Amino acid sequence: MDYQLIRDRIDKLVARVNEIGGEVQEVIIEEPASLEQILQIEEQLGMKLPHSFKMVLTEFSSNFSLRWFLPEELEPPEEFKFIYCGMPHWGLELLPQFEEDRLGWIETVFPNPSDDYDAVWHHKLAFCEAGNGDYLAFDMAKGDDAPIVYLSHDDGEGHGYVMANNFLELIENWSKIAFVGNIDDDWLPFTTSPESGIIGDGEVAKRFRSWMGLNS
């Protein structure tokens, strides 16, 4: 994984958002985690973290957060009408709280693993809040390098969609579309089916980068 390329995309995005009068509230890229820190969290969670997620945590950053917003007066094209910000984040120390939250949703709202909608919430590991009660999560039933799926609490269109086949693929493709907001309305335009994942090199992504002025 070319982490410098990810940093370069972030730098270009931050510069562009500022240039067009938007707001960048936060850019956090903390030092990588140690294997000991990861083992402590795995013990606390009672499960092993997905392979590529551990790679990113130990090679790139243990705690990452980026918050940017387009200027209110900027009107996007119709196909990007829901996109106004980006708020990707992950943090090793945040995982226990996110997992507690996910289990809370299962206990109170989605308890039935035999129900198709409820089942999406089961056997997952949440790592990113969407900001509206939804989560990005690893599908822990799919092997040691789990795909990333979207968990919606209120019938969101993206519920159960695969966002990427693993964490490295997620940050590669998500960074190509400016880490657009975590809510499914924001990234669904860059998918073609519930299994396609975010397509960072597709025609829609190219149009988005052109509109955002991120091609140069």
Rank of each mutant, 00 (worst) to 15 (best):
D2Q: 13
Y3M: 13
I6C: 03
I6S: 00
I10Y: 01
I10C: 03
D11P: 02
D11Y: 09
R16C: 06
N18A: 07
E19D: 15
I20M: 14
G21A: 10
G22W: 08
V27G: 03
E31D: 10
P32F: 05
E36C: 06
Q37C: 13
Q37P: 03
I41H: 04
E43V: 08
Q44W: 03
K48Y: 06
K48R: 13
L49N: 02
P50H: 03
H51P: 00
H51Q: 12
M55S: 08
E59K: 13
F60S: 01
S61P: 04
N63R: 13
L66P: 00
L70S: 07
E73S: 15
E73F: 11
L74R: 13
L74V: 11
E75F: 04
P77I: 03
E78L: 09
E79D: 15
E79R: 11
F82K: 11
I83K: 01
Y84V: 06
Y84C: 04
P88V: 02
H89F: 12
W90F: 14
P96M: 12
P96T: 11
E99L: 02
E100I: 05
D101L: 12
R102G: 06
V109P: 00
F110V: 08
D115G: 06
D115P: 01
W121L: 06
F127T: 01
E129Y: 15
A130G: 15
L136M: 14
L136H: 14
A137C: 14
G143D: 09
D145N: 09
P147I: 09
P147D: 09
V149A: 05
V149H: 08
H153A: 13
D155C: 14
A164E: 01
L168P: 01
I171C: 03
S175V: 08
V180F: 01
W187M: 06
P189N: 08
S193V: 08
S193E: 09
S193P: 03
P194S: 10
E195M: 06
K206W: 02
R209S: 04
S210L: 09
M212H: 02
